[in-house]
Amino acid sequence: MNQRLTKALVGLAVATACIGSVSAQDSKVADELAKYREALADGNPADLLEAKGEALWSEKRGPKNASLEQCDLGMGPGKLEGAYASLPKYFKDTGKVMDVESRLVHCMMSLQGFTYEQATKNWYSKPGTDSDIEALVTFVGAKSNGLKINVPAKHPEEAKMAKMGEYIFYRRSGPQDFSCSICHGQEGKRIRLQELGNLTTKDGAGTAMKTWPSYRVSQGAVWTMQRRLIDCMRQARFPEPKYLADSIVALETFLQKNATGTVMETPGIKR
């Protein structure tokens, strides 16, 4: 056996050993993360926010002194079972594709008489300040727990939004020439030990979408999908979208379409 071939075989053996070592480490990390998530799931603080959301749903508030019990989230006035899992969708009364948060804000304005500014003032919680929107979303989301995500985006306006969301997902922009797909467009990627799901597949998108809204242990608060996506864009150094922006609803439509058929498990709990 010549010297070149010997070196090649030794190199291949070393590479194979390294790959095996990395694979074993990956498996160990995955096992430990699974144990961590299982421990977190034992007593989800989001349950308290869900109860608050239930109370807010039936409480008479605003200039019109009305509840949200006649709010139509796509299943008919006051019908909540499966509503979250079927959003975003097109609403004829507004002529827009809306997600759960934009629809709730619409109901707070039309049924309760709040202004847009009043309804969205505290759209996410801060230290010492709870968010009614987060509570309502958690309550509504829980009503889809155990049901399948169903956002086929067949209406022309829904299809248009899904296409827009797909474009945003793949579009590279910002000072780092970044895109959503760089982290979430292929298998086996990870950052800070956190797996980055492939959101272009049903399983990957389903894993990402089925557990939101989620309680984030590191933040000590429930995050909605709007907040999660806006924060993703901030971290990617994109121009930060406004709350309820069409770009966020479009991304949600694209991701929910990909996740269609996945069973909801919400509220979730994450690091």
Rank of each mutant, 00 (worst) to 15 (best):
T253A: 08
V249C: 04
P239H: 14
A236Y: 10
S247R: 04
Q235E: 13
D246H: 10
A245K: 06
N258W: 04
W223D: 03
I248V: 10
V222R: 00
L255A: 10
N258K: 03
A245Q: 01
N258H: 09
R227S: 04
A221D: 10
S247V: 08
R227T: 07
K242D: 15
D246V: 11
P239D: 15
Q226W: 01
Q219G: 11
A245S: 07
Q235N: 15
V217G: 10
A236I: 00
T253N: 05
I230R: 07
D231S: 08
I248K: 04
F238Q: 02
L229H: 02
R234Y: 14
I248S: 00
W223C: 03
Q256W: 12
R216D: 00
Y215F: 05
A259N: 00
E252T: 05
F238L: 03
A221G: 09
Q256L: 15
P239R: 12
Q256F: 14
A245L: 03
M225W: 01
S218M: 14
Q226S: 11
N258C: 11
D231T: 10
Q256C: 14
V217W: 12
W223R: 02
A236H: 09
N258L: 11
Q235P: 09
C232T: 04
Y215P: 00
F238W: 00
S247H: 04
L229A: 07
K257Q: 03
R228N: 06
P241S: 11
I248C: 03
R216K: 15
V217C: 09
I230P: 03
K242M: 14
I248M: 06
S247C: 08
K257R: 03
R227E: 07
Q235T: 14
R228M: 08
L255D: 02
E240R: 10
Y243T: 09
A221M: 13
A259R: 02
I248T: 06
L251I: 11
W223H: 06
E240D: 03
E252N: 04
A221F: 05
I230F: 02
A259K: 01
